[in-house]
Design a protein around this nucleic acid. Structure first.
Lengths: 224, 224
DNA sequence: GGTGTATACTTACAGCGTAAGGGTGCCGTG
DNA sequence: CACGGCACCCTTACGCTGTAAGTATACACC
């Protein structure tokens, strides 16, 4: 067999291997050498297809964004698009804790991010949003995805760090932190339900802003 | 002068030096060796006061949290506490881009975080929130702080990365991304105003959930 | 067959976190 | 005053990181 025994490298193959490594061993374990080893290749060979490690990470970010933004919902109602996108993004990010950290560290705007922003903002403009409000809407949806997912990821590490905090979480410091203790004691916290509730809160809020905006426009445009 | 020419190390001094280094040179530059050098000391000397680099970073996170959570507003209205805390947190995090990244990477719950959570949740419980809703409220406020600040930090790096994206941002791809182009063309984006608007949206939403909750409780408790 | 080009490998360097062990000066006690 | 103990800090070393520079191999085409 004259051909090389291994398939040739490519950006695609590198990115998907990087995704596997990060999924399996976490983000700190994603070094160029380990990634190369996972592909049966030396570290330096990767640099033919990837400018930097930063470039690789940026590619990874957009790849992950594509996981929830692709395929875009074929739906004209901005609420439906926002809702399904938020749910999918939440699911994808929860399954890949390293992705949140990565997006925070490398807030890249890639092709998938562009396509998703375009789709959501177009729906909002079509629904009569002002460009300003469409801008706010995108930020609100995106911010909620990241902010809330980070909240949930914060929780599992709670017990692993800090005896003082763990005592509070076990309800042993009710004197000093009564409210926290009461809240923790009461609620069997359902993350998925909370995220859904907050999604609706966000969408309601946006819709109210939109309604207020159109009301103002009407009184301004036709006051006579 | 028989005493050592340098003041003895302490966790406090180390943390505040780490803060300066991160502020000046960024988070990647915060290595144990550089931090030691900033204190006139070798890297290994730090390990007498800090278990780990992770321990140091956790301390840094809570230190930053303290910057906006301390002193807690002396105010009984949860809305006021939430609003001022969000504004202060936003300001602090925008001035320290590395802090967002750090919180995402090390979602630690420290002493300052506990005190702040306690204060806000107590106000909510006092106002008649159910423990569930107070829990949601804290998550909503925290999530919005992080999510929105991350959004804003994403922007400055937009032009530095990716010629394709930069072209879109300059409005040269109106054919493929009409909505984005329209939105960018129209809005002179005011981040502070957007954050304030979204803060009110959040608070309104929470208040509506609270009102709905009390209405339901009334019909349940006294239906006769 | 010879040459060009793409691809992957090798070597090397500076920097990282930190484990292990070696000094050095203050401090309380005899 | 002398001395043991003990904080504190420094030195050295190891395996890891990203990546710059240079080298070898294997295929495509004239």
């Amino acid at each position: 067999m004259p051909t090389s025994p291994r398939a040739p490298l490519s950006r695609e193959r590198i990115l998907s291997a990087a995704l596997s490594v990060a999924d399996r061993d976490g983000l700190p374990a994603l070094s160029m050498r380990r990634l190369g080893a996972a592909l049966g290749v030396e570290a330096m060979s990767l640099y033919g297809h990837v400018r930097d490690k930063g470039d690789l990470l940026d590619g990874l970010v957009d790849h992950v964004v594509g996981m929830w933004a692709d395929p875009l919902p074929d739906e004209s109602d901005w609420r439906v698009v926002a809702r399904t996108t938020m749910a999918r993004a939440h699911e994808v990010l929860l399954a890949r804790p390293w992705a949140c950290e990565l997006v925070a560290a490398r807030p890249t705007v890639g092709r998938n991010r562009l396509r998703y922003a375009e789709a959501l903002q177009r729906r909002m403009l079509d629904a009569g949003f002002s460009p300003q409000l469409a801008h706010h809407g995108l930020h609100l949806v995106d911010g909620t995805i990241m902010g809330f997912t980070l909240q949930e990821l914060r929780r599992p590490t709670l017990q692993q760090l800090g005896e003082e905090v763990a005592a509070v979480a076990r309800g042993e410091r009710a004197d000093e932190f009564p409210a926290i203790t009461a809240v923790l004691a009461d609620s069997a916290h359902d993350h998925a339900a909370e995220f859904a509730l907050m999604t609706e809160l966000i969408l309601d809020g946006l819709e109210r802003l939109h309604a207020r905006e159109t009301a103002e426009r009407r009184t301004t445009d036709a006051p006579s």
